[in-house]
């Protein structure tokens, strides 16, 4: 049995997008669990929720939508920056909608931990290449 990620966090207000993304992630079979949160605020609450043994959820990979109610992707990133390292994920990836892609890419230059942009919806090939790029060891052991 190949090694999997412990947890992937999807932050997106679109139920249908979450459904599709969760389904495709499950199809490529790279993680033990998939958690979905509807906006930045809920996601922050989830990340900062303390578990027994001074542990945190700490998902390895976060897919972040930008355009969300309550707390959007940019606001989330501002808050995320202030978290302790053990609360943070290994990789955060922003997902962009085509219509706002250009202006959002401009803005994203101000956020250091965002180097990759993905266009929604994610495809299975996209997921595989992301895993290969950020978690090469998972692919090796396959």
């Amino acid at each position: 049995m190949k090694k999997k990620l412990k947890q992937i966090l999807l932050i997106d207000d679109s139920v249908s997008d979450n459904f599709i993304h969760a389904r495709r992630i499950r199809n490529v079979n790279v993680t033990e669990s998939i958690i979905t949160k509807k906006n930045g605020r809920e996601a922050l609450d989830y990340l900062t929720e303390e578990l027994p043994n001074n542990q945190y959820q700490q998902p390895e990979l976060i897919f972040l939508d930008i355009n969300m109610p309550v707390m959007n992707g940019w606001e989330f990133l501002d808050e995320y920056d202030k978290l302790m390292d053990k609360q943070k994920a290994l990789v955060v990836l922003a997902m962009l909608t085509t219509s706002t892609a250009e202006s959002d890419k401009e803005k994203a230059k101000n956020y250091g931990h965002l180097s990759t942009f993905l266009e929604k919806p994610l495809k299975e090939e996209d997921l595989l290449s992301i895993i290969q790029k950020h978690f090469p060891r998972l692919m090796e052991e396959e």
């Binding site: 679109s14 249908s16 599709i20 085509t98 929604k120």
Partner: peptide, 11 residues
């Protein structure tokens, strides 16, 4: 309008 359209084509 793009949002629901995207949902349709995605599904």
């Amino acid at each position: 309008l793009q949002e629901p359209l995207r949902t349709v084509s995605n599904f």
